[in-house]
Every structure is written in C-alpha cells, then in structure tokens.
Write a protein that binds this DNA or RNA. Structure first.
Length: 363
DNA sequence: TTTAATT
C-alpha cells in the first residue's frame, strides 16, 4: 500500500503532497510518541535550526525538535523532526504546514515512523524507465514488493519530459532488496528496454565531490608552471582521500606538493595560538558582505573535521566585515584546506586563507 | 543521467 508520494519539484500540483494516513501504530510498552512526532522533508537548504523551531513552534508547544545536519560539515540535510506535546498540534501541523512552499521547495510534513534499522537504506535508484511511464505507473510496478514511502521521476527542467530515471523509497529495506531481485534487468510490460534497479547513492556525497572537483580544477590552474604531472596526481589523490575520509600522511603531502610545503613553511610565522584544545583556528579574509556561516562550512567541510565557523559581522549593519574564522580538529586537514583555499576565487573575490596569528586577532 | 526520509 502506498502511504504517501511526492512529485518532482517542478510539478507541484494539488496531489503532490497527499496527506499521510493516520499515525503509525505504537510499539507495545515503548514510549509512544507516534502521535506527536513528525518528520519534515524537502526543507530549504539554508533553513536554520532556529527558523525550523520557530515555524513549527507557531503551531503549538514543542517537546523537542531537530534539524538534521551532516555530522562533519554541519550542513542541513534538508529534513528534520518535530515532537509536539499535544497530539492535536501534530495533527494541526500536518494539516497547515504540509505542502507549504518555502523558497523553491514544497515541504512535506508527516508522522515519523518508529526509528529502526529495518527502515534505513530502503531507497532505490531506477534507470532505463520508458519515457512514457509516469509516477503512478512506476509505483504500481514496485508496489507488489512492499509499501512505498516516496517515489519520484526526474524530469527535464525545461521540457518537463521524463528522463527515464527515478527513485522509490520502500518502508523496509528487505522490501527494497526484493524489488531489486524482482525488477532489476526486467522489462516493464510493453517496454522495449530493461530497467536497472539498485540502491540509491547517498545524496550527501555529491556536494563534497563536486566541490573537490571544482577546487582541484581551480587550484591546478593557479599552479601551472612548476607543477609536474606526478605532483598533480598526488594532489588530486590527497583531495580525494579527504573526501572519503582516508588519511594522507603529511610526509607524503610535503614531499609531493609544493603547495602543502608552502603552508608548512609558513607555519614559522604563525603564532602557536592558532592551535588550541579545540583544534586549529583558520583566518579567512576577503569574504563578501553577504557571506554567512554556511559558505564556510561548504568550503572547509570537504577537507575534514570542522568544529566551528564564524563570520565576523558589523554590529549595526549585520553585514560581514570581510573575514571569518574556521576551526578544524586535525592539523593535516587544516593545512590541506589552507593550501587549497588560499587564493581560491569565491564569486569575484580572491580569498586569503591562513592559520590565525595573534597579530590578526589583535584586540 | 543519482533526490537531501529516521533523531
């Protein structure tokens, strides 16, 4: 049985946010928040925890709420949870906020299913679909394997025609596994080509990779002269290793990367106050007046563990004063971020990035 | 040809 579906963002018809059925059945004995706990999806990327709480707090008293964010970068993952004190307020939130348009998104508000391992990793990527197949037909094809939580067919942004690619999220992972067994490589009735069905990638991996590719291209261009092919290859390896959480020995970076050597050498001029118990403080200069914390998370997150970011603002105008600070846990990752981001072009500005010195922090 | 759905 299909409990709810979501159409593509470009076609927000009246059916795009069909109301969920009643609250899930409560588990016996366990604390029953099934009638008060909601999951909120398709939130705008830049929505903060405070804005999230404010929006849902306008309905009624909140017991707890959480905007889910990436553990490393702090970036919003575009969804969150709200647990109300009163089940009536949860119901009211669904009725009044589900389908609300926020910037380019149409948010979805529904009861959260009880959290368990069995509902994780139940999202499928489907390709090779007939262009004529619509969302409902795709759901009919997959619904024989279990309860579908969401489905989506990706469409061309201009023409609106199907790209033959879609997603199916099942209630349970085993249902998704069965659908792969039953449908991968099979031709839907009347189709001329077989479809491919597999587990979907985690979307959070994409932004890091895209940023790294961009960074590599821009930094490689800046160091055309002295760079040998071998050096470039090791630099790319290091960047990719960061993306996948693989440690690169500093000795390797130092031996093969003139950029990294520069950053290490420059340490001689850095006051040791850059390091503290909470990590390595990095000074970022030439940010635009409109810069906010999210851009710092985006820039430095791919290089490793970031524990804090701060944009320094004018007290009266609230505009960025042109600089900010980033704290990273590991020296090696901080050095790589500095080596890669110093001189990086952000919009029409060239960033200056270095370890924080006592001089720059002068009161 | 890969979208921000389980704290």
């Amino acid at each position: 049985q299909i409990i709810s579906t979501m159409e593509t963002q470009v076609s927000n018809g009246p059916t795009s946010n069909s109301l969920p059925n009643g609250p899930p059945l409560s588990a016996n004995g366990a604390a029953d928040d099934s009638k008060t706990n909601l999951i909120v999806n398709y939130l705008p990327q830049n929505m903060t925890q405070e804005e999230f709480k404010s929006l849902f707090g306008s309905i009624g008293e909140i017991e707890s709420c959480k905007l889910v964010r990436d553990k490393i970068t702090g970036q919003s993952l575009g969804y969150g949870f709200v647990n109300y004190v009163d089940p009536n307020d949860a119901d009211k939130a669904i009725n009044t906020l589900n389908g609300l348009k926020l910037q380019t998104k149409t948010i979805k508000v529904s009861y959260a299913r009880p959290s368990s391992a069995s509902i994780r990793d139940a999202n499928l990527y489907v390709s090779g679909l007939p262009k004529s197949m619509n969302q409902k037909e795709m759901e009919q094809l997959f619904s024989q394997y279990g309860r579908i939580i969401t489905s989506r067919i990706l469409v061309d942004q201009v023409t609106g025609v199907s790209r033959g690619v879609g997603f199916i999220r099942f209630d349970k992972r085993i249902e998704a596994e069965e659908a792969i067994k039953g449908l991968n490589g099979q031709k839907p009735l009347g189709a001329s080509e077989p479809i491919t069905v597999k587990f979907a990638n985690n979307p959070s991996q994409k932004t890091g990779q895209a940023l790294l590719t961009h960074l590599y291209q821009t930094t490689a261009r800046r160091y055309t002269g002295p760079l040998h092919h071998q050096t470039q290859r090791f630099r790319l390896d290091n960047l990719l290793n960061m993306a996948y959480g693989v440690k690169s020995p500093l000795s390797l970076i130092s031996r093969f990367s003139p950029i990294a050597i520069d950053s290490v050498t420059s340490l001689a001029g850095v006051n040791l106050t850059a390091a503290s118990s909470s990590g390595w403080c990095i000074f970022v200069y030439n940010l635009s007046p409109e810069a906010d914390e999210s851009v710092l998370w985006q820039l430095f997150g791919p290089f490793g563990a970031v524990t804090n970011v701060k944009v320094i603002r004018d007290f009266t105008t609230n505009k960025c004063k042109g600089f900010g600070f980033v704290t990273m846990t590991n020296y090696e990752e901080a050095a790589m971020a500095i080596a890669s981001l110093n001189g990086y072009r952000l919009g029409d500005r060239i960033l200056q990035v270095s370890f924080k010195t006592s001089k720059q922090h002068k009161a």
